[in-house]
Write a protein that binds this DNA or RNA. Structure first.
Lengths: 358, 358
DNA sequence: TTGAAAGCGCTACCAC
DNA sequence: GTGGTAGCGCTTTCAA
């Protein structure tokens, strides 16, 4: 029946209020030059018809959509949903809407999503890129402001906000070392991504500072997916001389690693300590409770959106502006999955300060 | 410098290809009446300029945006992100984009989000409503097709897709009963939501079938938030005669419940069994591994989007159509958090068939 | 088969 | 201060 309920236009309002469309438009845009009396009349008419201005028409006219796109590899990963939440919050309060695109860790899909977003004339984009080196060379990057989050492809330059992965990994590794571990392994992410490389480098640095070796077989190349954590974990545990501690570079891989541990009946932290990158609501309920490096996810989303908004503000012109890169500080959350090594075949010596957190 | 890169219009293409704009438009819309030769020429011109048609202008003209909105109470809840993933997938392959709105469990925000989506002239909306009874009376529900997911407010009628909560709760509770539990408590969600009420009813039914009592103090009213699970859990555990099993009606509340258990040093499942509604990737890594009722989340998202798309297809006219309600089947995943009751002060008798799953 | 022109709902300019 | 009107980029008659 009332299918076309409420599809009124500015002209309907104008007619009902007995003014011109220009006046109605003025009211919509809070033009201060319109007499209060008219404003009231127009508003009354709007209320009467429950009028909601057509954002599409407006966008076409003013050449701004008040819309941003966010392209992420996996909506299902709690890391990204926390980020999204921050973005959403910030967007809403600035009057923006956000179009969500899941690129499914697929560079081609990412490219296509960016094209779609361009067609839809979003004002800007937040992008957590896939690892494909070619993706960021797309022409889309010239089309609208992009703020990269979490991870930048090696060689990319432009505005970005992420965790200070180097420092975080360094701190986490130091925690392991202070516990007394000497044989420490790492399961890395893609090294073509800053988040992958920086974490490895922070890890390396901490080892070097203590003159600890990193045998090739302790350096396992993962890809941030659960499966790789599992596979690498298995490889490590089956080594003739397995590590006494493992640093897993993201939440998914930690999951895989824990599965591997369970499968070969290696008890954590008794036989091997586990330090995971990424914290999540459930970390404290694991068996054992997971020691993690918590990224400031929500904050990351907020900051990224704010950064993007600032770019959009700036006269909509020179996007070339400053190439801001924000590095947010992570937080080490020590729980039960890390402990001093258990008679690991080697010297368990020196005072072990478990409570250290610095 | 090249700020305005690629903002070409259909006229630019027409000029370059030496045809009229109508022809270009025809090519864009795959009109079969255009000579292949011209099509080729136009396409070449498009490629040359890397032309991407303005979706905004198109939307204004054809009065369809190929956009849907999804309004959910919490992007951060893995239940919803799995749903979103299903929606996204289905939307992408149908050429739709999705605008994400987090209503933060706030009825007023939900209402506002719906209004914004209407202004943006989305073709339809997927809505996981808050519990406020008034929300679904909004005029917005007359404006565009809405498919409700997960939970419908009591009294709502319209297309919806959700889990068969009654059956799922019934099956889960039977599992507890078969393990030998007699003193079984429940922590419910909002009973003004179908998901809250139906789970309670399924639970009740299973109890009644076995002539088991449900004392008032075993019926704890939660609100699907972690905090309420914690509070209700504490109340239950401090009862003079505490239950030997607790059924928690969603993932967040289960989390709170586990926290309560830990806090009062009650061992699960030795002292009390826990059955949680909602499964997630991490359930199997909890201490203990959680027995859960897994909803078909991804499927729910897919089905909901498909249902919506079908509505949109149907001549864009009679939305009044059938009031389809899909009830998807859940799956009981038995793990370690449920076990036979431990000399709970009462008779532990009869044969206990732990492996049952029917 | 192709092209010219009207118009989607809004804003912004200019004339009153 | 207010109103008439051109035009944002596209689709879609209708005429040629």
């Amino acid at each position: 029946m009332c299918e076309e309920v409420g599809l009124y236009t500015i002209r309907d309002i104008a007619r009902l209020a007995g003014v011109s469309v220009a006046t109605v438009s003025g009211v919509l845009n809070n033009k201060p030059t319109i007499k209060p009396k008219l404003v009231a009349r127009v508003k009354k008419a709007m209320d009467a018809l429950d009028y909601h201005p057509d954002h599409v028409a407006r966008s076409l006219r003013v050449r701004r959509t008040l819309t941003v796109g966010i392209v992420i590899p996996d909506v299902t990963n709690p890391f990204f949903t926390d980020v999204i939440r921050g973005v959403e919050q910030e967007a809403q309060s600035a009057g923006y809407s956000v179009i969500l695109c899941d690129s499914n860790e697929d560079a081609e899909l990412e490219r296509r999503n960016l094209a779609i977003l361009f067609s839809r004339r979003v004002d800007g984009v937040l992008l957590a890129p896939t690892s494909s080196p070619s993706a960021h060379e797309s022409r889309m990057h010239q089309r609208f402001p992009i703020v990269v989050i979490d991870r930048v492809p090696i060689g990319f330059s432009g505005p970005a906000v992420m965790t200070d992965n180097f420092a975080a990994a360094h701190e986490g590794t130091r925690h392991l070392i202070k516990l007394g571990h000497r044989r420490i392994a790492i399961i890395t992410g893609q090294l073509a991504l800053s988040s992958g490389l920086d974490r490895l480098e922070g890890f390396r640095k901490a080892l070097q500072e203590e003159r600890l070796a990193l045998p090739d077989e302790y350096l396992q190349h993962g890809d941030f997916q659960s499966e790789s954590g599992y596979r690498c974990g298995l490889d490590l545990l089956r080594l003739p001389s397995p590590p006494t501690a493992v640093f897993s570079c993201n939440n998914k891989m930690t999951l895989g690693l824990m599965r591997a541990l369970r499968e070969v009946h290696v008890i954590c932290p008794d036989a091997v300590s586990v330090l995971g990158f990424d914290d999540f609501e459930w970390s404290a309920y694991f068996n054992p409770r997971l020691t993690t490096i918590a990224q400031p996810t929500y904050e990351m989303g907020k900051q990224a959106m704010q950064l993007l908004l600032r770019r959009l503000q700036r006269s909509d012109g020179d996007q070339a502006g400053t190439e801001t890169v924000l590095r947010l500080k992570a937080e080490l959350r020590i729980r039960d999955s890390t402990a001093p090594p258990f008679c690991g075949g080697e010297e368990i010596k020196q005072f072990v300060d478990v409570s250290t957190q610095s």
